[in-house]
Amino acid sequence: MNATLRYQIDLIFTLTQKDLAVRYSNSYLGYLWSLANPLAYAMTFFLVFKVFIRIDMENYAMFLIAGLFSWQWFSNSITMAPTIFIANDSMVKKVNFPRSTLPFSTTLQDMIHFILSIIVIVAFLLYYDMKPALSWIYGVPLLLVLQFFMVFGLSLLLSSFNVFFRDIERLTNILVMLLFYSTPIIYSETMIPDRFKLLLYLNPITPIIISWRKLFMEGTLDPLFLMLSAAYASGAFIIGYIIFKKLSWKFAEAL
């Protein structure tokens, strides 16, 4: 294997391992906490929308679970993204290592959490008398790759910009909240009135969230949403990478 590639893999592995170790140091329940957040959301939304507002949908709890975990990956990574280079400023200022490995490993870390949480999704499926489909074998890796590149691209963009404009951090928090409610996670895409349908396609994370839910609950991949996901993922990655390339050599000066 090429020596540089070999080294970059080592670097990403070490950074991811560090992130995981740091996240769970001094924590007794460790990994279980990363499940607690989406489960608490699912419980709250179930209570509010199913029990109080009486939304007309079968298996609403399952529906929530199938969307919330992939959302959790997205929102965790994106909320953390702006701080990535700032939190590692002393390294960035002194050592000339490939900077893109920092956002890469935080994205990877959140992806690993998402993969581990699929167990919970399976448990819910079994509880509702459904079971994992054979199509998961190719569907899960495919969607993982698409979401990875989308999240990595956005992380490159946000982390690079925030070195120069620290307000990005605050802005991101608000945008993530707005995105959550404009993505069909607590409601289904079929409930959106026709005149708002355009919004559905303009939201870059809608296609991937819908794809995950369809895959988990029905075992199918919708070609339209899959293609939209791929388009948004490559768009996010290309734009993020170009911005990162343009700005990264100035990081050490601006931090």
Partner: peptide, 23 residues
């Protein structure tokens, strides 16, 4: 610089060494 306060000295050696360009 380049250390993480929550990690042990042993783990920090690995982290720092890899960041400095070693396998």
């Amino acid at each position: 610089g380049g250390f993480h306060p929550e990690l042990t000295g042993r783990d920090n050696i690995l982290l720092n060494g890899v960041l400095l360009g070693h396998t």
